[in-house]
Design a binder for these strands. Structure first.
Length: 401
RNA sequence: GGCGCCGUGGCCAAGUGGUAAGGCAGAGGUCUGCAAAACCUUUAUCACCGGUUCGAAUCCGGUCGGCGCCUCCA
């Protein structure tokens, strides 16, 4: 059995075949650090952490890039609201809290953790290139990507460009200047009191989406194996990334496997900053061990819309106790090849961690009753990133990627 | 309106053609000085209607209901 991953572009599971045998290049959309992060972010990054660990366990050399979009409307909004507070300060403050949460959850630090504002040159270069190729056009300092000229636009969203164009203002800015309703900004003029950078078109700032293209190209090359992120980023963000990257490089596909995690809901409603229905990982970690929270976050498949309810984590208490106990107490260091096989089978099936955990829990019960396989159990739990199983990571003092 | 996901016992949930895993909660029990833990036992006409089939939770069509995306969002 080999690893099969579900890719949103084809809407099916495919065998994972990296561009370069033995290596995996992964880009995962990070956060915009203008505000708190919540359990939904933790759900996403813990699951991509498991993807990464599993690929490494399979023997692949993984390069994992996760960006920080530190210049956008929201960052500026917060800066203005707080009397012109420097954006770098807002970024660093929120990012430190975010990182501390992920560290406690034993999420491995990314191989590269780029900031958008450190890639303005690359953004300008990519924009120039898209202009030179005729994929973009400039209007009075603003540069737009012309979506209609990219025939595959809409494919990730499962909808044709003609259908998309019928919708209301997919990208609502600068409506009057655009050639087509789906065109989106690569570079934009900004207000005098907003952060800006010199460019051939105007002193301005990047649009949204171009920074991810610039960063993935800078750190992973023209084509990547896996692009991850929340399903809410599919449109327009990832749709735009495909259009930009493939237009700029002429290489297709830009990405082999599009992996989108489901949205975490709170009592049936999507958790989001705008609704304010947030549960924070750091608050939960006051009541539960980080590994216990990780167990919860891996108990729903990454692609499903998990629904958090009061009691969801408590419900896993006895499982958590069994798994930690087996790691602490099991003396006999025996392997269980059958357990390895079913574990790998579950994980090979689009990272079915919930199924894997069921299997490991059953095995833990047997080990605690005198069965064999403690070594396998511990190692498998380490692949899933549990610090109590000695998984390497920040929670065990290893900040190295 | 468009795209997509989903409706399985009190709750969560596996199961993609051969008469329903598991977990939590509940009930009963074993063990224990009591309790806890552990272990054992116990709970389902699979949203509804129609179709295909020897046979469907599982495939097809429809209905109802819930959710996500289509605007910033992991």
């Amino acid at each position: 059995m080999t690893l099969h991953l579900y890719s949103s572009l084809e809407r099916k599971k495919r065998e994972f075949i990296p561009l370069v045998p033995g290596e995996a290049r992964i880009y995962v959309c990070g956060v915009t650090p203008y505000d708190v992060t919540h359990l939904g972010h933790a759900f996403s990054y813990v699951n991509f952490d498991v993807l990464r660990r599993y690929l490494m366990w399979k023997g692949l050399k993984v390069r994992y890039v996760q960006n920080v979009t530190d210049i956008d409307d929201d960052m500026i909004m917060v800066s203005k609201r707080e009397g012109g507070r420097p954006i770098a300060q807002i970024r660093d403050e929120n990012d430190a809290i975010f990182r501390a949460d992920l560290d406690r959850l034993n999420v491995l630090r990314p191989t590269v953790y780029p900031f958008a504002t450190d890639h303005i040159d690359a953004i300008i270069e990519t924009t120039k290139r898209l202009l030179a190729l005729g994929a973009a056009y400039e209007v009075d300092g603003d540069v737009f990507f012309e979506a209609q000229r990219f025939s595959d636009y809409g494919r990730l969203n499962g909808i044709s460009i003609q259908e998309l164009a019928k919708l209301d203002n997919p990208e609502s800015k600068r409506e009057e200047k655009k050639r087509g309703p789906l065109d989106f900004l690569l570079w934009q003029r900004c207000a005098p009191d907003e952060p800006s950078w010199p460019s051939p078109w105007c002193d301005g700032r990047p649009g949204w989406s171009i920074e991810c293209t610039a960063m993935s190209q800078s750190h992973l090359g023209d084509q990547i194996d896996i692009h991850g992120g929340g399903s809410d980023l599919i449109f327009p963000h990832h749709e735009n990334e495909i259009a930009q990257a493939e237009s700029a490089t002429g290489q297709s596909p830009f990405c082999g496997y599009w992996m989108h995690n489901g949205m975490l809901k709170l009592d049936g409603v999507k958790m989001s900053k705008s609704l304010g229905n947030l549960v924070l990982a750091r608050n939960l970690m006051e009541r539960f061990e980080p590994d216990h929270l990780r167990l919860y976050l891996l108990s729903e498949h990454y692609r499903s819309d998990a629904d958090y309810r009061e009691g969801s984590i408590e419900g896993l208490s006895s499982r958590y106790a069994r798994l930690t106990k087996v790691c602490e107490e099991a003396e006999e260091d025996t392997e269980d090849s059958a357990l390895w096989r079913v574990f790998e089978e579950a994980m090979d099936d689009d990272l079915d961690a919930p199924r894997a955990l069921d299997l490991l829990d059953q095995a833990a019960g047997k080990v605690l009753n005198g069965g064999i396989g403690a070594a396998t159990l511990r190692q498998a739990l380490a692949v899933l990133g549990f610090a109590f199983a000695d998984a390497r990571g920040p929670a065990r003092g290893s900040l190295e990627p």
